[in-house]
């Protein structure tokens, strides 16, 4: 092997290493998720979330997933990062399109940390077609009725909210198959809480072991930001 050949080889090897490193960095940056920013109007922030049985985004695993609605465009964004202003009343609406799964710890059936420790729930056959009137409750039993799909919890604020699943008979007939869901049977849950007094990041997560196929249902989407867990940024 001649000297020029060797030098060329070394250069090629070096270029390959650099290319690999660049690829890793680009991959890393590309994997970061967008944040949906909510701003207060009239001292109130309205956060709208959606729970889908499957994520249809072809580039990602097809796991069960939360979506966040962009307040301006009303588009559903496949992320679990959103921001709210500090010390503001936050009204959350969660549209539950996913069927029920039993809780790991049925204690999470209890509503905690919301204004009045209650949530208001209404069932829909499809968008705009309610099948019952809104009811306010302090607890949605996940075990005896299998009526809970997921939970929304911000543990460090002691906020724990079970989110009901849609009407079972309707869900078995035509569950939403394409995410983000815009039609199909779903539940609608609303509750409020006060955002914290100082800026920072608050993680939120689901307490239902809904990572189907993973040990005890706790892997996959449960441990992946952008699916069943995320962060609420509180801005100053």
């Amino acid at each position: 092997m001649s000297l020029p050949a060797r030098i060329v080889t070394l250069l090629v090897a070096f270029a390959a290493v650099v290319a690999g490193a660049v690829f890793l960095v680009v991959n890393y940056i590309a994997s970061s998720l967008p944040t949906v920013h909510y701003v207060a109007s009239g001292g109130v922030v309205n956060v709208v979330l959606q729970e889908d049985p499957q994520n249809n985004d072809p580039s990602n695993p097809d796991w069960v997933s939360y979506y966040v609605q962009n307040p301006q465009t009303k588009q559903w964004v496949h992320t679990t990062l959103f921001s709210v202003p500090k010390h503001t009343r936050v009204n959350v609406t969660i549209l539950g399109y996913d069927g029920c799964t039993p809780l790991r710890n049925n204690y999470w059936s209890q509503v905690q940390g919301t204004t009045g420790s209650t949530v208001t729930v209404q069932q829909f056959a499809t968008v705009g077609k309610p099948i019952d009137s809104p009811t306010t409750t302090k607890m949605i039993n996940s075990w005896s009725n299998c009526a809970v799909a997921h939970t929304f919890a911000i543990p460090s604020m002691h906020l724990f909210v079970p989110v009901p699943s849609p009407n079972t008979a309707l869900f078995n007939k035509d569950a939403c198959g394409v995410s983000p869901c815009t039609s199909g049977p779903h539940s609608q849950e609303t509750f409020s809480f006060m955002s914290p007094d100082h800026a920072g990041y608050w993680r939120w997560q689901c307490f239902i072991p809904c990572g189907g196929g993973f040990l005890d249902g706790n892997g996959g989407p449960m441990q992946t930001i952008g699916y069943m867990t995320g962060e609420m940024e509180v801005s100053a």
């Binding site: 029920c100 799964t101 299998c146 079972t168 078995n172 809904c210």
Partner: peptide, 16 residues
Amino acid sequence: QLGQAWAKLGIVGAGG
């Protein structure tokens, strides 16, 4: 309690 709930609903939960 889950067996009863399933029997009542006739389904298998979303997480299996």
